[in-house]
Nucleic acid binder design. Sequence first.
DNA 1: CTTCTGTCAATCAATTTTGATCATATCCAA
DNA 2: TTGGATATGATCAAAATTGATTGACAGAAG
Lengths: 267, 267
Amino acid sequence: MHEKERHRIILSAVQDRPVVTVIDLCSLTGVSEATIRRDISTLHMQQKLRRVRGGAEAITPPQFVGLAGRPFAVNETLRIAEKQAIARAAVDLCEDGDSIIINGGTTTFQMVHPLASRRMQIFTNSFPIAEHLLKHSKNTIMLSGGAIYREQNIILSPFENDVTRNFYAKRMFMGAQGVGPLGLMEADPLLIQAEQKLIGQADELVVLVDSSKFSQRSSLVLCPLDRVTTVITDDRIPDKAAAMLEAADVTMIVAQTGGAQEDEAAS
Amino acid sequence: MHEKERHRIILSAVQDRPVVTVIDLCSLTGVSEATIRRDISTLHMQQKLRRVRGGAEAITPPQFVGLAGRPFAVNETLRIAEKQAIARAAVDLCEDGDSIIINGGTTTFQMVHPLASRRMQIFTNSFPIAEHLLKHSKNTIMLSGGAIYREQNIILSPFENDVTRNFYAKRMFMGAQGVGPLGLMEADPLLIQAEQKLIGQADELVVLVDSSKFSQRSSLVLCPLDRVTTVITDDRIPDKAAAMLEAADVTMIVAQTGGAQEDEAAS
DNA sequence: CTTCTGTCAATCAATTTTGATCATATCCAA
DNA sequence: TTGGATATGATCAAAATTGATTGACAGAAG
């Protein structure tokens, strides 16, 4: 058994379980404890795992959901003011009693705050959105089934015939990584899959993107612009992008980031 | 039981209720009070929780988020010791890597603490169980789709062809309102519907019921006894009930409520 | 006021884990 | 094949963890 082989086995075992003991790894590899300890030391130096008393544990990627219950810890605070203004404009499109679909994302997540005082029927594939609305609102919440992907914070089923197909709404709200002449773009294939599953279950497609997204380009095209009914963005949208949207016959709503809007806050 | 595992379980338990006593954590982990106190001290230094007299509390004050916030607010504290012992025995049946189904309920919810240090595939229709495991464990979580019923805390889809049909597991764990000669009984038709949807997706059916459930009678029969593989209960089970289970060829596991119990069961 | 109970810190013994050392085995190149 | 370098296994002392015991202390009960 070569060193590389053992290291692969150790790393594999560490991924399988929260903690692996030296003894476990001994019986797994058939070598002595001393060797396993040396291997763990080496891998610890290489940051491939963390060494703990009695064995090793997987290096924990920065806990996204763990700490204060704040999902999307990294992205959450980026352009927060714009996202909140955009999300508020999105909720303003709705009335109590409406059925809507909300696709998971950091921008759409901001819709939960204005939605807290509403009573609507909300279908989502986002666990944090469902969680928040469940705790802080009286909306009816419907959830798509499937596996929970921790990194993306969405629920996705690999099957075609799930409950998603049985829910139909007037509007669907979603974000995007970028918006260009080719349409909506996304970086993560998993998100593409989740979004394409929901598109088609609603009449109108409302896209929430802050103005920086018009200069973003990603590798994967989600859907063409003419499928989009409305784009909500902030007031720093480039003229060229506005023209592009107009040419594609997309309704554009510009949310004012400034304070002009906040005294008529709905209760 | 290694230090990391204990810490996971302690943090998991602390999130569950406003305060956890040292004794609780002893029976939950199977180690001595001294060790638990040392662990609490360590976690207190790490700001992972706050240390209080008699035990520990979460660093974030218990969120008072209305009725639906704390799962099962009323039932939660009833017979908590029995439920925890039963739930622990249930998790002891499983090994890392297993696929299981957990039906929502107050007893099955207690499985989340011993599950915190596991790495398994878990399918559930309970939002609180999914939420807790997502935040405090590394298990793979799969969720059934549908509407979230706030009172029962479960997710239920009225459709036949949802993702539930695509998940199959070795074992399914569930609670019940009562157990009698006719079989498992439940009071809420909604719960019946949810449970019947999951029964059949697993080989073995493991029922978690504290001993008081053998004198309960409810109006609705969920399934006959011969569908049940195993019943886990506590040591106050009446002889008559034990005989009934034996007659029905049901394996019975009696979880010891007291602190001194088997801890060599693992692996 | 006394007693009792539960909690906690300190201490000690037992066990486990670790680090270091050394002898042996294996591999690679000359 | 030989020589040297490296990897492995075994052994043992040091260090860390754990469980049990003890006494101190605070609050409840009598």
